[in-house]
């Protein structure tokens, strides 16, 4: 099941002015649960696409296909929903760099 929560991000606390809470939805990545994503995309102000920077190469094709799928979704294209690609697990020494990940994703797509 997706995790959902409304809270104030740490970065907002130090900001001056009005503090805006954010509603964050963590959608399961398993392919059988992908349709869940369609329930949330129409109301999304932004998408964070999380990539495992460690186990990147063996999953390159699957990651690219999923990302392509998101970038071409009607609701995303129509509303120009911003997508950020987040390279996770970069604390590990064998993790790939964000530049490498970007190049490989561009090449694959």
């Amino acid at each position: 099941e997706p995790n959902e929560g409304t809270f104030i991000l740490n970065s907002e606390i130090s900001k001056k002015g009005k503090i805006k809470p954010v509603h964050l939805v963590d959608v399961p990545g398993h392919s059988r649960l992908r349709p869940k994503l369609d329930e949330f995309l129409p109301q999304a102000a932004g998408i964070v696409f999380v990539v495992d920077a460690l186990e990147f190469i063996p999953n390159l094709r699957a990651i690219s296909e999923y990302l392509y799928d998101i970038l071409t979704k009607g609701s995303v294209v129509k509303k120009k929903v911003p997508v950020v690609i987040c390279c996770n697990k970069t604390d590990k020494v064998t993790a790939h760099t964000k530049e490498f990940i970007r190049k490989q994703l561009e090449k694959e797509m």
């Binding site: 809270f7 991000l9 964050l24 963590d26 959608v27 990545g29 999304a44 998408i47 495992d52 999923y66």
Partner: peptide
């Protein structure tokens, strides 16, 4: 809307990220 959707393949670490963002860590 103030909804941000976290997505990615299974095992990419979305759920850990979700709790880190929620708990401000």
């Amino acid at each position: 809307s103030n909804t941000i959707v976290l997505t990615g393949l299974s095992g990419s670490g979305k759920t850990v990220l979700f709790y880190q963002l929620r708990d401000g860590s």
